[in-house]
Each structure stands twice: as C-alpha cells, then as structure tokens.
Nucleic acid binder design. Structure first.
Lengths: 117, 117
DNA sequence: CTGGATCCTCCATGATACTG
DNA sequence: CAGTATCATGGAGGATCCAG
C-alpha cells in the first residue's frame, strides 16, 4: 500500500473535466505535505536520499520514498542508483521539475509578508 | 517563466528547513484539496456559498464550510451575511487574499504545458 | 439558502523492524 | 545507505439529517 497504486496512477493520467485548466494539473503534482518542499530542495541541486530526509525535517523513509516515486513517475525528477558500497541514490529535477520554480518562487514572497496569521 | 532571477534563487535556496520560512507559511494557507481552488474562484470576484460549491465540483457542505472558515481566520477572505430571506452569504478575497494571485497565476502556465505525460 | 451536528471512510503519514 | 514490509493513526473529506 505504500507504493503507488493503480488507482493513484490512473488519477494522475486522467484528464480533468476542465479542459483548459492547468491549476488542477499543477496541484496534482504539488500534492501532499512534501512534494512542494522536495522540489524546493532539489532546485538547489541534486541530493541524496538521506540529505533530502534531513533537509525536510526527517519524514519517515516510507513517506519520503512514496513521494519521490510519485514525482519520478510524473516526470518531475530522476532517480539515479550508483552500484557502490555503500549504496548511493541521487535525486535530480528534470527540465519539467525545474520549470516549477516559477510557482515555487512566488511562495516565499507571499509567506514572508504574511507571517502573522 | 521557467527561470528565476539569481536574487530570487538565492532567496529560495538559502532558506534552511526552518518552520517559519515563507514557503511553509504559504503552504499552510494553501493547504488541503480545496483552499487553492477557492482562492482561484474568488480571484474572479465575490461569490456566494452555492456558487462556490458548484464551481468547485460540489464538495460536501461541511468540507467547504470548514475550508472557508480556515481561510477567513487566516485573513484571506471575508464572509458577509445578508439578513434576508432567503439568506445570502458572500465570500470575498481580502487584500491579502488577492496578493496570492502571483502564486496562483504561475500554476496554469505550468499545468497547461505539462498536461501530457 | 446556509451550514451546524453527527457519524463514518479513506489514505497520507508515521513508527518500527528488517534487508541487500 | 537506501530502501521494503507491516501495522497503526490522525484528520481531511464526505453522507446524511436537521435548523434558522
């Protein structure tokens, strides 16, 4: 159940009822508590699994793995395994992932001004 | 639009995983499945409860009410009750809510380009 | 028409233990 | 190190009924 179910994958590939609506599609990629933060971390450059975990505040390995797999299937990032000892896996944004920076960079500007609730 | 300035990139990448930084604050407002879509609908102008429900694809009344209350408490929108028969309640973005348009507008641009897998 | 009160389902996230 | 395998859980979201 931890992996991406057929149900979830189907949801990702299905076209929304709204024809020209890109907001929904973007929200399906930037979904959940971690996707946006993962992209933000990787905008600074490729990172290893443990580096990502630490940078994000140590979510569970299962959760982070699930999120990374989803983003990988959506073409936002790539997963590269180095057959070494100790093993090393590097995550890196694709061109599509980098193109999300437009969405990401608008957030801190708003959040910093609106710090108070 | 896929690229960002060096200044903004610096601002983006220099942020550690601090709990109070701008991205996290923005994500706390644009949280859940509906908040972002509610803001998008209201960017076009004030709307009534039923209008919002229909425009969003008819979420349950409870869910929509909960989300609207949260956004109201965060100062993103205002709730105005007209003591009429039948009752009428109008939701409208505050200045703070309108300032989220920068984040919102970046989404369709990405989503439309990346609609295909 | 708006939405409060209740009860319920589902799933993203997490805790823990284990493996190549 | 980077996961996988289980099991547990909180809370978002929903269904339904009811009230002002």
């Amino acid at each position: 159940m931890g992996t991406i179910g057929a149900e979830q994958l189907k949801q990702l590939t299905e076209e929304p009822a709204c024809p020209g609506c890109g907001v929904e599609r973007t929200l399906r990629v930037l979904d959940g508590k971690w996707a946006t933060l993962v992209v933000r971390e990787l905008l600074a450059g490729p990172k290893r699994f443990t580096e990502l975990r630490a940078a994000l505040g140590a979510p569970s390995a299962k959760t982070l793995t699930d999120r990374l797999r989803a983003l990988e299937h959506q073409g936002v990032l790539t997963r590269t395994v180095f057959a070494e000892v100790p093993p090393r896996v590097v995550y890196e944004l694709t061109a599509r992932g980098h193109s999300l920076s437009g969405v990401l960079h608008a957030m801190p500007a708003w959040g910093e001004v609106n710090g108070a609730r």
